[in-house]
């Protein structure tokens, strides 16, 4: 074991160990990379379906989500101003508009569904957020999201408003989450910006 006493031995040892372990990690990372990407894609597709008036009960596995998505959803075209389309028998039932913007801690990404009348909200869902658990994180809960269903985009000004809990609601507003003012304000800001831009773009297309 005289080799062990040489002063280059620790360096060689470190080098070989690092090389071996890294090789395994890289191999595993490469094998799973496509899967990780697929997962992200499925999360998006699930959010799209959840924002639309589609009954997903019992069909929530990744492959079922993917099939449902492929059968019903069409990619954005010029006539939808960036929104995905939900079609049945070639007639358009609703639009799904991807939304994203800065949250309190990290970017929030989601989808909002709008019926064919371009006014009635069919639902909202989020597939990526890192807001404070129990506060801003509550945006993913159905208590918050269900409020959006059936609301109408205002024709002028703020398209959709997230109001303080103390303020009364009308047909184009929902209540914020108590204690999560920062998340609610920011969400309100980019949601309205995206919706107003879409509303105006759709008017122009008509």
């Amino acid at each position: 074991m005289s080799m062990r006493e040489k002063n280059w031995f620790p360096i060689l040892y470190m080098f070989i160990t690092t090389l071996l372990l890294s090789a395994v990690v890289i191999a595993f990372g490469t094998i799973t990379r496509q899967r990780v990407k697929d997962n992200e894609r499925i999360a998006f597709e699930r959010a799209v379906l959840e924002a639309l008036p589609i009954d997903l009960s019992g069909r929530t596995s990744p492959s079922e989500i993917h099939i449902t998505y492929r059968e019903n959803i069409t990619e954005p075209t010029k006539s939808t101003a960036g929104a995905l389309g939900y079609r049945k028998n070639d007639s358009l039932i609703a639009y799904a508009l991807p939304i994203d913007g800065p949250g309190f801690w990290a970017p929030i990404r989601g989808v909002i569904g709008i019926a064919a009348d371009k006014q009635t909200i069919t639902g909202i869902s989020f597939y990526d957020q890192n807001e404070t658990p129990g506060l801003g994180g509550e945006i993913v809960k159905s208590e918050f999201r269900d409020q959006f269903v059936g609301k109408r985009l205002a024709d002028e000004g703020t398209s959709l408003e997230i109001r303080m809990v103390s303020v009364e609601l009308d047909e184009s507003s929902v209540h914020a989450i108590t204690g999560a003012t920062q998340t609610s304000t920011r969400l309100n800001k980019f949601l309205d910006k995206r919706l107003s831009a879409w509303r105006d773009a759709m008017k122009e297309i008509e």
Binding site: V24, V25, F28, T32, R35, V36, N39, A43
Partner: peptide, 12 residues
């Protein structure tokens, strides 16, 4: 790292 990556791939 292996565990984290496996979780990411199989239980996102």
């Amino acid at each position: 790292i292996l565990f984290d990556q496996a979780l990411k791939a199989y239980w996102p």
